[in-house]
Write a protein that binds this DNA or RNA. Structure first.
Lengths: 359, 359
DNA sequence: GTGAAAGCGCTAACAA
DNA sequence: TTGTTAGCGCTTTCAC
């Protein structure tokens, strides 16, 4: 009545009056539901273009019985500490969106097991959710899955990894190239006072992530090229799951290349490597790694890791859900890309990151 | 369960039926408003004890004409680039909370002018807002003001600066001591390969901030004490507003102390200092400063500033509003402290921070 | 195709 | 001191 807030708020009723139709018709036009004559639609759309209408979420949710389901297709948290981190984002998003009739449904698959991915994807499709947020780990299988979503008209968002061939509503993650550059600059800073060479160390990286890691490597190389064009930077690749041969291969590579600093693009790689170095009296070699895994944090504090770059998987997931919820509820368009800040973690600021729940 | 989706949710209507009164009476009992007979109150309270009633907040907000006002008491953005940054948080919060009947009302005061603070505070009190978020710059005046708010039962939240003697709902900001430590470690990293000493440089800091800056200094000193107990770290204090004498004093201090690195706790200090150093051929001296001021960013990219620590004032304000809105609307209790991560900004990751709107 | 009208759960004004 | 009722803005059903 005398609510000052409502004075400027445009309601469906107002649009109806302005376009000379009923609220029912306006609703049908806005949501493209039911039958509307070309003439009526034009009138309403004209008004909509001229004014700035924002639906009232409260009224919308209150008046509706519809419950939206957002499905998450992500690696099993029990398998990998990095992915476990992302679950915090799920929990918080769950709490935040529940009152607005949003239900979140995770579907887990096993890393390094493409079959389980396909199985989870199928199960997800059976439930026919309203939207999907997904970490597209398995290139080939993922593409198939997203093509199906396209067919069904189910919107989806990618996070963490970017893949080509499909077009999600948006991608949430970091600029891998710049991340590599940052890693290089930090490694340089940590090791410049010592003699030797730096290298990027690829440890058992799934082929599926190739673009991601290739970009980091490119950034890494470009940084060093820019500061000293003459000297080339090597890349060491270690494959296989056997810890003994890993150690052996690593030590050989280090000795051969006279390594003083390692840039390790995978979350778990840093802790594996730091352990081997320590055991072999190579603790002076600088490491720049990724993410706030428990072990990485301990190593950072003990000065075994010089820097970590934070990818904030929990917030990536959280923001993916946020954009989809807004899409479903408000028809707000998500940005095609949401790039996160490249956060530098040191022994001195790591605690401040742990305290901040979901900054 | 607090689950509005659940169709078996208990409504006021149900309580009314169970206790044999009308919804109006139930509403009066629940909110202790209007007149209710002892008998009716007892009946309703009995039912309320037996069942688990959670009001539907969507309906509550929608049905209510009450508009909450949150007042902001902050430095004038035109006066200081740091405070100007915080306004982004206000804008975004405004948009986000408007639909929930939250109005944000800023009251600006001038830095270095205690009178204007008092004047703004008085004006604010006259408007009798429902809650206040404030940067308590002027210790003495601020304490008076908050005591009054206490008296009036108006909840308030502090951000940026912590003060004692009063107890806000919560404090939003960073750990100043740890921030000083971080600054020290970064300065060490940037300058350890060169000869000379490091110092903390206080430039025209308002006395009002004293705790804030004293803590940073303490952290700064503690870091260097821990890595080399023998050597003491100096502190240089420059006061006054005259740029010429600033330059002179700074150069003298640098020469006298054989300075190789400067830690500058104020946002604007870094850019002032960098200019003077450059002009006097002292560009090799490392600087660690604060915040993403336009000039600081440029200097960072040109390698005139080694690191910046991001205090994220816009998000601090945003979160303060967030907690108050939740308090008013949902009676949710805010955390007594929300400490932000200490974000390290380098030439390589600064752009990623600029792209992220309000991360 | 369209408009009118009955909710959603709560608040607040108004009778009684 | 009570109960009744008209909104809040949107959805959804039901006549026409």
């Amino acid at each position: 009545m005398n609510d000052p807030m409502n004075k400027n708020m445009i309601r469906i009723k107002d649009i109806a009056k302005l376009s000379g139709v009923s609220v029912g018709t306006v609703d049908r036009v806005i949501h493209k539901r039911g039958k509307v004559s070309e003439k009526a639609r034009k009138k309403v759309e004209k008004v909509l273009e001229e004014i700035d209408y924002t639906p009232n979420l409260l009224a919308k949710t209150l008046g509706s019985s519809k419950v939206f389901t957002i499905a998450l297709l992500i690696p099993h948290p029990g398998q990998d500490p990095y992915w476990k981190l992302s679950l915090t984002g799920l929990d918080i998003a769950q709490k935040e969106w529940r009152p607005y009739h949003m239900e979140l449904q995770p579907y887990f698959f096993e890393l390094e097991n493409a079959k389980s991915y396909t199985a989870a994807a199928e199960k997800l499709l059976k439930a026919s959710p309203d939207a999907v947020v997904s970490a597209p780990i398995f290139q080939n299988e993922a593409v198939d899955f997203f093509k199906q979503l396209d067919q069904l008209g189910i919107p989806y968002i990618h996070f963490n990894t970017m893949i080509s061939e499909v077009s999600p509503l948006s991608f949430i993650g970091q600029d891998s190239y710049q991340s590599g550059k940052l890693g290089a600059s930090l490694l340089h800073l940590a090791s410049k006072h010592r003699e030797g060479k730096v290298t990027i160390l690829h440890i058992r990286e799934s082929v599926q992530h190739s673009v991601h890691f290739r970009e980091k490597e490119r950034g890494f190389r470009d940084f060093f090229r820019s500061i000293r064009p003459s000297q080339t930077v090597s890349a060491v690749i270690i494959e296989g799951n056997d810890m003994d041969t890993f150690e052996e291969k690593l030590i050989i590579a280090i000795k051969k290349n006279d390594i003083k600093g390692l840039f390790i693009p995978t979350s778990s790689g840093a802790k594996l490597t730091a352990g081997v170095l320590e055991k072999n009296g190579l603790g002076h070699i600088s490491i720049v790694g990724y993410d706030l895994l428990k072990e990485n944090i301990a190593l950072l504090k003990n000065d075994k890791i010089a820097f970590l770059i934070h990818q904030n998987p929990s917030r990536q997931l959280f923001r993916g859900i946020y954009h989809l919820a807004n899409h479903l509820l408000f028809k707000k368009k998500a940005p095609s890309k949401e790039l996160f800040p490249l956060e530098v973690i040191t022994a001195e600021n790591v605690d401040s990151y742990l305290e901040a729940v979901l900054h």
